[in-house]
Design a protein around this nucleic acid. Structure first.
Length: 990
DNA sequence: ACAGAAGCTTA
DNA sequence: GTAAGCTTCTGTT
């Protein structure tokens, strides 16, 4: 085994009991042999091996083993005679299945490991340690809390029944302590199933709080006298010995003298005939079929295996003693075990280090303290020599956490020049390092460089080791910006937190933004120095390099100081609210990915745009002449007010709707209606608007974004801008490049691949409807997606009873509008508008839809109720979107919030899925030996630039990563489908 | 010089 | 009916 290898260890015994209890009983048809657990086990093993191969390029197992318990007694019984004393014999119909499951494991050609005198958990601990020492990663297939003590940077768990990954953040979320404290926690709480005593009256919550306060069990027992609550103090003092024994019992033994080595676990490709032979003997017909398909085996030609069924106890003796869903654990016999096993604390933990409270209580304490502490901007240090900077770097390294912020000449990180940077090592202690400040004013000749500034390259040479040190956590507000800047200066920041993203995960959609100024006001009760007060206002504004260094020190020092204080307040709230994994899996890992995408940019052909611009100008000019002629006068066509006066005043056309300011609306809808009733002018206006829109927004604006050096266009992705979890794109917005009209599409032809490359566009087909089918669990929708049927035609057919064959396009169009309406939180008013039909008719449609798909109504009502109750809704990955105004007494406001709340889990889950895909993609492509570069994201689409020769090899990787992106956290009830195409430009690739 | 409204582009 | 960003016009600062 070597670095990069990945070991899967299946807790076989644990799985048997869990499957037996969780799955419906199943017997073999021919002889009523109970096989429910065997079936569950085979399906799980197959899924694990197959899904890992197909869906998640990041976690393909290279090594695989199933571990079982063995023997009735082990060293734990010697430590504590009552260990597992209250176990009863396993149920009658489970007994024959123990042997069968071992046979199943062999049929899969997976090693089947057990050892006299040790529990499965000890073997798992031992192999996980061996894998770690060899540089590999381990995934333990189990959800047993006894195994959570093993979780660490290279060891994760995976719950096969809930399809959920359990890493450090999940352990912290569930138990309130990091994995390395699980042993102490279990020692306190005990375990009734295994008869581990623990301390009576101490449950997981209290245990976690005590461990927060005292750090570990020994300290707690030594200082138990300090506990405030009288009763609790006494029980802990009285039961200290029980706690110590319990700790021995629950500590897993990671030094079992195993006979098989990791190299014996090398994963073999499935042996189709052998496996099918066993499955046939079990009469698992659907799994037999699936295995036959995947392995390309002709199942009909294979004879069922001879399976030995032993109903007598001695035949399955090994498992007899583990009578409940594996709750076993092992003590620490020698010093060899746990101390060495303990993974380093996560940042989630270090954020709380030293404070003696549960995550929630700590979060509140920090919040209160933060407001009380005054911020003094006069105390910041200005660093002007290398010696002092070196001291600060040392101080930051020692502290292990440092807030970092850059000051630059531009908000656009691709154009910005670094003026200086600030650091903060603890609240109130911050420093600014000016680098290229100049005297005088920005314009004219200005002054020269201010004296006594460290040279940029010298300062960065000192800074680089700090920023690239994985053991020092860097905290920034909007780290992606600083990442792009520092990347451009040759520094790759690793190990960081982002206060903006933490706030976004906690409070997306809640009142108030996630900018530093509003966060400081909200959480610290501090009003920050306004940028315009240091750099000036409007026309008088200068870039930061012309800001007076004293002022700059106050401003930049404050940025770092405030960022660090915010982090101390906000970070503990993540764990307290169960949101650590959203932040750590959906937000933080996307930062470097987007940073790369922004830096790559995309090529835009200037010539195509300028030619197009000329054509649009000509077309618009011609239309203007005709418009003036038809109107009988010249006016500003782009002014809705003036246009309204012409159309509805002078010409006396019938006005349609009004805008909220009382003006006659001149919207495209109104003008289209007028055109339809035979008026010439409105049609011309609509056409004119289209041409001028394309010209001003795209053909004229885009060339201005071409970077002078890279010659490419670099958009900026905002990660914390939407309420649902979507990204947004700006300067320029590359998420709204035209596609609907043929004229508009021509703009897409200007987005081109580099020489020798192709653009690949890969988009999810109907992802939001698929998410809806999953969350609302609609049988017809699930079936239609499983069968690959035209979803809108199916809807139309269900609703109107029209057969799909030969369906009129208008019928399908209406069904499509309704499907979209559902996603948007449908209203009769909105649907009527969309389809230009009467509101009553739209209401009828909706009623009929709910009759056909009652699950949709249940989902909508359920979501509304949840949102009203909690003030937020959740995506399938646990991201929250807040709707504080959903309880408004204003019906308009309330309804709007209800629709948004219905939409958010759907739109947001889809956004989460593509985020996961992007994070994996950035790794998966190079790991597959490919040079494809991910450039853009447009909500359900990813655009890549791929060398010509690699296009064919890239497409399946892209598709596989995207289609499997929900796994393993969520097993969608509907398949995801991705369409990918390559071409020379974006128009043809899409 | 800025802010809001109106309108239009995307998913 | 959901989610965004950009441009133009217009009125206010």
């Amino acid at each position: 085994m070597k670095k990069g290898d990945h070991l899967f260890l299946v807790d076989g015994s644990g799985y048997i009991f869990r499957a037996y209890h969780a799955l419906p009983p199943l017997t073999r048809k021919s002889d009523s042999l109970p096989v429910g657990a065997v079936s569950g086990f085979c399906n799980m093993l197959w899924k694990l091996m197959k899904d890992a191969r197909n869906t998640d390029v990041g976690i393909v197992p290279t090594h695989f083993a199933v571990i079982f318990d063995h023997s009735s007694r082990n060293f734990r019984h010697d430590l504590y005679s009552e260990y597992k004393a209250n176990r009863s014999a396993p149920p009658e119909d489970l007994i024959p299945q123990f042997g069968l499951i071992r046979q199943a494991t062999r049929a899969f050609e997976v090693p089947c490991i057990e050892m006299e005198g040790f529990e499965a958990d000890d073997l798992i601990a031992t192999y996980a340690r061996m894998a770690r020492e060899a540089g590999g990663d381990t995934t333990i297939i189990s959800s047993d809390k006894d195994l959570m003590q093993l979780v660490g940077p290279s060891v994760a768990m995976y719950d096969p029944m809930k399809d959920r990954q359990i890493g450090i953040p999940e352990v912290v979320e569930k138990w309130g302590v990091p994995p390395e404290k699980m042993i102490d926690l279990q020692a306190l709480t005990g375990d009734s199933v295994d008869n581990v005593p623990g301390v009576p009256g101490i449950g997981p919550k209290t245990a976690a709080q005590l461990l927060e306060q005292f750090g570990d069990l020994d300290t707690l027992l030594a200082r138990a006298g300090e506990i405030k609550q009288d009763k609790r103090r006494q029980t802990i003092i009285d039961n200290a010995d029980k706690a110590r024994v319990s700790r021995e019992l629950v500590t897993l033994k990671a030094d079992v003298p195993v006979s098989e080595g990791l190299d014996d676990f090398l994963l073999q490709p499935p042996n189709g005939p052998k496996l099918i032979s066993f499955l046939k003997a079990m009469e698992f017909s659907s799994l037999t079929r699936r295995v036959a398909e995947t392995t390309g085996t002709e199942a009909a030609e294979i004879e069922p295996a001879t399976v030995v069924v032993q109903r007598k106890e001695e035949a399955h003796g090994p498992d007899l003693d583990i009578a409940a869903p594996a709750q076993a654990s092992a003590p620490q016999t020698a010093a060899a075990t746990t101390a060495a096993e303990t993974p380093p604390a996560t940042e989630a933990v270090s954020a709380r280090a030293g404070d003696g409270l549960s995550p929630a209580a700590l979060a509140d304490t920090r919040a209160h303290a933060a407001v009380a502490e005054k911020i003094d901007t006069d105390r910041y240090v200005c660093i002007r020599d290398l010696r002092t900077l070196a001291d600060w770097v040392a101080e930051a390294t020692e502290a292990g956490v440092v807030a970092f912020d850059t000051e630059t000449t531009s908000l656009d990180p691709m154009l910005a020049e670094l003026c200086g940077f600030s650091l903060a090592t603890r609240p109130g202690r911050a420093a600014y390092v000016p680098l290229i400040h100049k005297s005088g004013r920005g314009d004219l000749l200005g002054g020269g460089l201010v004296e006594n500034q460290i040279a940029v390259r010298d300062a960065l040479a000192l800074l680089k080791p700090l920023l690239e040190d994985p053991s020092v956590l860097k905290v920034a507000q909007n780290m992606k910006y600083d990442l792009v800047i520092m990347n451009r200066y040759g520094i790759d920041i690793v190990s960081y937190d982002d206060t903006m993203l933490i706030s976004y995960v906690l409070d997306a959609g809640a009142n108030g933004g996630h900018g530093m100024d509003s966060l400081a006001e909200r959480w610290l009760g501090h009003k920050t120095i306004a940028y315009k007060d240091v750099a000036g206002n409007g026309k008088a504004a200068t870039t930061f390099d012309f800001v007076d260094i004293d002022k700059a020190t106050r401003y930049a020092g404050e940025d770092a100081d405030v960022t660090l204080r915010l982090w101390r307040v906000l970070k503990p709230r993540l764990a307290a609210k169960g949101l650590a994994s959203v932040y750590e899996r959906l937000e933080r890992p996307l930062v470097p990915v987007l940073s790369q995408m922004e830096q790559r940019g995309i090529s835009v052909d200037r010539q195509i745009l300028s030619r197009l611009s000329g054509e649009l100008a000509q077309g618009a000019a011609a239309l203007e002449d005709e418009i003036y002629r038809l109107a009988g006068e010249r006016f500003t066509i782009g002014s809705p007010k003036q246009l309204g006066d012409i159309l509805f005043g002078k010409m006396g056309l019938p006005g349609g709707s009004k805008t909220k300011t009382g003006q006659w609306s001149t919207s495209a809808q109104v003008l289209e209606d007028l055109a339809a009733s035979g008026h010439e002018l409105p049609r011309k206006i609509v056409d004119w608007r289209q041409l001028t829109k394309l010209k001003s927004t795209y053909t004229d604006a885009l060339p201005g974004y071409i970077h002078p050096e890279t010659k490419r266009v670099h958009t900026n992705y905002a990660m914390a801008a939407t309420s649902t979890g979507r990204l947004s794109s700006s300067e320029p917005n590359l998420q709204n490049i035209p596609i609907r009209t043929t004229e508009g599409r021509r703009i897409r032809t200007a987005f081109i691949a580099d020489k020798g490359h192709k653009l690949v566009s890969a988009d999810y087909s109907q992802i939001e409807l698929r998410v809806l089918a999953h969350v609302a669990d609609i049988p017809q929708l699930r079936q239609a997606f499983a069968d690959g049927i035209d979803i809108h035609a199916m809807t139309a057919s269900e609703m109107f009873g029209v057969p799909v064959q030969g369906m009129p396009s208008e019928v399908r169009r209406r069904a499509k509008a309704i499907n979209f309406g559902i996603i948007y939180g449908i209203s009769a008013f909105g649907l009527a508008n969309q389809l230009s039909i009467a509101r009553e008719e739209a209401g009828d449609y909706i009623r009929r839809y709910f009759e056909r798909f009652p699950g949709i109504r249940d989902y909508m009502d359920g979501t509304k109720a949840f949102a009203r109750e909690n003030g937020y809704v959740e995506t399938i990955f646990g991201r929250r979107a807040h709707y504080p105004e959903i309880r408004s007494s204003n019906p308009q406001v309330r309804s709007f919030n209800e629709r948004a709340a219905i939409n958010a889990p759907i739109q947001g889950s889809a956004a989460d899925i593509i985020r996961r895909a992007m994070v994996r993609m950035e790794k998966a492509l190079p790991e597959a030996g490919l040079n494809a570069r991910m450039l853009l994201q447009v909500h359900d689409e990813l655009i890549f630039e791929v060398p010509d020769a690699e296009v064919e090899a890239t497409l399946p990787v892209v598709r596989t990563v995207m289609e499997g992106a929900a796994m393993p956290a969520v097993a969608l009830k509907v398949p995801l489908q991705v369409e990918a195409r390559a071409a020379d430009n974006w128009d043809e690739a899409h």
